[in-house]
Simulated scan of single mutants.
Amino acid sequence: MRNERGGTKTEEAYWLLRRDILSTRLPPGASLKLGSLRETYALGWTPLREALSRLEAERLVTAVSNRGFAVAPVSRHELEDLVRARMVVEVPLLLESIERGGNAWEEALVTAHYRLSRCKTAGDDPSETAVNDWDEKHEAFHSALIGAATSSWLLRFRNTISDQLRRHHRFLGLAPTLRAAAGRIDGHEAAMAALREAMGLAHHTALMEAALDRDAERAQKLMEEHIGYTMDVYAHSEDGAAVRAVELTA
């Protein structure tokens, strides 16, 4: 998460709530009652209300009639829309980086890949610490891939899409683990296989190598496949039942 914070209580409330929403510590559909939030974050009414209004503008929070606020739900429609949007925005940024990137871009990309390679995936270590570490390094790798792009608007759109997708990825990534914990074995192997492929290092390595080789055609194909993995994990996570369950409770 980008962690540049201001010094006001409203900024503090905003970044704390945003962090917990993106990490799904505050899960999709969760009620955001001011009284409970005050106890949890030790912040006043006004900073929390202002932070929630700001998060609503970012579509991370929704206002519920006569019930205050709730974490924005996830849905198959939203997920498919985000995947399409990411394809439209991120592929051109990657191609521009391949065309424009110099030595500094190459070095940053190799460094980001190395740091990602040192992380355990959720399939190997589902602890919150490991998941947070992988999530941070994974975002840094994709940011490095497009680091030589210059379109400020496309980069801004990409950051917004990335934040929204992160909630879906975190929720979907936990679904196979939750399924196994509940003792439901049918399809679990397929779900875990899809998750490992989506998070695995091999595809990220291939992406890096294609970019460094300035092979734009191969890099585009790999990026399109990589973005599509999100829907593969959804398809194998109880046929999307976990996501639909959250939709129903929102």
Rank of each mutant, 00 (worst) to 15 (best):
T129K: 10
H169F: 11
S75V: 01
L154Y: 07
S65W: 09
L116E: 06
E90K: 08
P126F: 09
E139V: 12
A70K: 02
V131I: 15
R115V: 07
I146H: 11
L94R: 04
S65G: 03
L94K: 01
D186Y: 13
R118A: 11
W153C: 06
V71Y: 00
E99V: 00
E78Y: 00
L154D: 10
L172I: 10
N103D: 13
R156Y: 10
H113I: 05
F157A: 12
D133M: 14
A149D: 03
D81Q: 10
Q164R: 11
A175R: 04
I98N: 02
I185L: 14
A63S: 11
A130S: 14
A175M: 10
A104M: 04
A70I: 06
D163N: 12
G183T: 05
Q164E: 11
A63G: 03
S162T: 12
G123D: 09
S143Q: 11
S75A: 07
L95C: 00
A63I: 02
L94H: 03
R179Y: 12
R76G: 06
P126I: 13
R76M: 07
D186M: 09
A104V: 07
V71W: 02
S65R: 12
V89M: 05
P176E: 08
D124E: 15
T111H: 12
R179W: 14
R166C: 11
D81M: 13
F69S: 05
D125R: 10
L172Q: 11
R158N: 13
V89I: 14
R158H: 12
W153M: 08
A85T: 03
A144E: 03
N159A: 15
R76T: 07
